[in-house]
C-alpha cells in the first residue's frame, strides 16, 4: 500500500524552510566516479558517458544518463529535463539545458518525433535543438565530437524496443500511430531535415 505521511519539513516552497539535518560525523568514502548526466542519445560530453558506458567519444552515446521520466517538472536537477510539449518558449529552446530541478518541460529521453509547440520554431524537432546546444557547447570547450547513432535522435519505436516502454506526455494521441493516411517515415524525414511539422 502506498501510504504517505505529511511532513511540514518536506515543503519545498511556499512554506517555512526545512530544518537543516545534523552534520555527519565522518565523511563516507566516495563511491564510483560520477558521470555527467545528460538527457538523450548523442548528447554525452565524454567517452564512456552514455547509459551503457561503452561509447568511445563525445556525442556518440546511445542513451540518456539522466533518470528517465515522462513529463514536465519531473526532472531531478540541472540539465536533466527534456522539453517540447509543455512549458514556455524559453524552456522549449533549452532541452537538456534547464537551470534546476523540475524546470524541464517534457520527457527524457527525447524521441526523434517530438516537436516544439510554441514560438517561431514551433513544429520543429526537439532533439535537433538539443543536439545544436550540445554542439555549441563542444565548440566552446574546443572538443571534438562524433555522430549520433541515429542522425536525428532515437525513434520512439526504437526507444520502446530498448526500454520496454516509453511514454512522453500529452493527451493528443500518438505521433507515430497510423490513423488516417499517416506516413510516419515521411514525417520523420522532414523533421530530421529541419522542416516544421
Amino acid at each position: 500500500m502506498a501510504i504517505i505521511k505529511y511532513t511540514p519539513n518536506l515543503s519545498l516552497c511556499g512554506g517555512s524552510a526545512p530544518a537543516p539535518s545534523a552534520a555527519p560525523q565522518t565523511c563516507a568514502p566516495a563511491s564510483a566516479p560520477s558521470i555527467e548526466l545528460h538527457v538523450c542519445m548523442g548528447l554525452n560530453a565524454c567517452k564512456g558517458h552514455d547509459r551503457y558506458g561503452t561509447n568511445n567519444c563525445a556525442g556518440t552515446g546511445y542513451c540518456a544518463t539522466a533518470e528517465q521520466h515522462n513529463c514536465q517538472t519531473l526532472n531531478n536537477c540541472r540539465g536533466q529535463g527534456g522539453c517540447g510539449l509543455y512549458g514556455d518558449i524559453e524552456q522549449q529552446e533549452n532541452p537538456g539545458n534547464n537551470e534546476c530541478a523540475w524546470q524541464g518541460s517534457c520527457a527524457v529521453p527525447i524521441q526523434a518525433e517530438r516537436f516544439r509547440t510554441l514560438g517561431p520554431e514551433r513544429g520543429k524537432s526537439v532533439w535537433l535543438q538539443a543536439r545544436k546546444l550540445f554542439v555549441q557547447r563542444m565548440h566552446k570547450a574546443k572538443r571534438s565530437y562524433g555522430d549520433s547513432p541515429f542522425k536525428c535522435g532515437p525513434p520512439q519505436n526504437w526507444l520502446i524496443s530498448v526500454l520496454g516502454s516509453y511514454d512522453s506526455c500529452g493527451n493528443s494521441g500518438d505521433k507515430v500511430c497510423s490513423f488516417g493516411f499517416n506516413d510516419p517515415d515521411d514525417h520523420a524525414k522532414k523533421l530530421c531535415e529541419g522542416e516544421k511539422e
Binding site: L85, T117, G170, N171, S172, F179, N182, H187
Partner: peptide
C-alpha cells in the same frame, strides 16, 4: 502562461499537427 501545449494540438488526416 503558455498559449499552446501538446494537449491543444491535434493531427489532421495526413497526421500533420
Amino acid at each position: 502562461y503558455a498559449q499552446n501545449n501538446i494537449d491543444t494540438v491535434y493531427y489532421d488526416k495526413e497526421h500533420k499537427p
